[in-house]
Amino acid sequence: MPPSLIKLFVTASSVVAGTVTTVTTTTVDDNVRRYHAVVTLGMIDGTAGTTTIPDTSFLDDSGTAVAAGALPVLPVLPAGGYYSLYINGVLQEGDLSALSTTELVIASAALLPGTPVIIETHDYSGTISASASTPALTVTTTMNT
């Protein structure tokens, strides 16, 4: 009889069991501030079609004048933030205005002197979130020959 190759026969099986526990803690910090001003004739530019309210024309909720360059600039994502603009008590569309540290520019000259303007800002830059995972996995492998 000619020689033949003897092959090893092996079987293996594995079992993975266990859990992964994940805990996420999120603290939302919505820093809300409001500022109000009254439109004057000098703020309205009929030629440009805009109304520009300088920072120093605004008062905060306590009635304190806003310092030069101190209007809030809201963070971009992921921290996030936004502002709402109310003209004469009516919420305005977002694209109607632009807010910087030095002024609020409203894309309209249709305002009248004496019109109240309110900016309400929401700043989420103080929001924190943390996740922790605890794996408890067991892997068992059995080989049979």
Rank of each mutant, 00 (worst) to 15 (best):
P3Q: 05
P3M: 02
I6L: 10
K7N: 09
F9C: 04
T19I: 12
T21W: 03
T22N: 09
V23Y: 05
T27R: 10
V28Q: 05
Y35M: 06
A37L: 03
A37E: 06
V39W: 08
T40W: 02
L41F: 02
G42N: 09
M43H: 07
D45A: 12
T51L: 11
P54D: 03
P54G: 10
D55V: 11
T56N: 12
T56S: 13
F58C: 11
F58V: 04
G63W: 09
V66N: 05
A67T: 12
A68I: 05
L71F: 02
P72V: 00
V73S: 04
V76Y: 06
L77G: 05
L77E: 08
L77Y: 05
G80C: 04
G80E: 11
G89Q: 15
G94T: 13
D95R: 11
A98Y: 13
S100F: 03
S100E: 10
L104S: 08
V105T: 15
S108H: 02
L111M: 08
L112S: 15
T115N: 07
V117R: 10
I119W: 02
E120M: 03
T121Q: 05
T127N: 04
A130Y: 07
S133H: 09
S133P: 06
T134L: 10
T138V: 15
N144H: 07
